[in-house]
């Protein structure tokens, strides 16, 4: 499938092209939404809103390659999720500039079942989980996260540190071996 043609079709409002694009990216984007909003129903609503915004603003999008399209869609979905959480007053981040760097041991981590790690991440408080997902999974920098959430860079770093400490604690509580090395 030629994605450039699909995008061109979407720009002219072609229903078939829009449907093709939706079918192609809806599952991946649903995963993104569920990362921030675990409730399935809410995630579906956010997915639809995100695609609607994409089709409304597709005229501004300049197609370079598939990854640029995916990144743009993902950005829209994340923004929608953050807006949703903000409206529900679920992003409660206390401003703090002091943080201690936490390094997780890669060898120990590799021995833990991926499913367990995901469960632990999903059980993190909303604020920690959002910063953790944005930094670790999506790959945003702290300055970008700070801009997206309206917080300082130091707060973003401290939130990530606290998320990692909570992750370590939850994994320890579940009886999994998890070594942490504190530094800073």
């Amino acid at each position: 499938m030629n994605h450039a043609l699909t995008i061109a079709g979407c720009k002219t409002g072609n229903r078939l092209a829009q449907k093709q694009l939706f079918e192609l990216y809806s599952k991946n984007m649903m995963l993104v939404c569920r990362r921030y909003v675990p409730n399935n129903h809410d995630a579906e609503e956010l997915l639809l809103t995100g695609f609607l915004k994409f089709f409304e603003s597709v005229g501004k999008f300049v197609y370079k390659n598939d990854s640029s399209l995916c990144a743009w869609l993902k950005q829209i979905m994340i923004n929608e999720c953050l807006m949703f959480l903000r409206k529900q007053n679920r992003i409660k981040i206390v401003e703090e500039n002091q943080c201690t760097d936490v390094e997780l041991d890669a060898d120990t981590l590799s021995s833990i079942n991926a499913k367990h790690i995901l469960d632990v991440i999903n059980n993190l408080p909303d604020g920690y989980r959002i910063v953790f997902n944005l930094f670790v999974i999506e790959g945003y920098s702290h300055s970008e996260i700070a801009q997206m959430l309206g917080i300082s860079t130091g707060t973003s770093k401290s939130q990530l540190m606290r998320a990692k400490v909570s992750l370590q604690k939850l994994l320890t509580d579940k009886g999994m071996l998890y070594e942490t090395r504190w530094s800073g």
Partner: peptide, 19 residues
């Protein structure tokens, strides 16, 4: 605070675990 090997491993595990 920069990304380290553990972060990449976590990402990999999370993405693989996501059904």
């Amino acid at each position: 605070m920069k990304r380290d090997g553990a972060d990449d491993l976590l990402k990999e595990k999370v993405l693989s675990a996501e059904e």
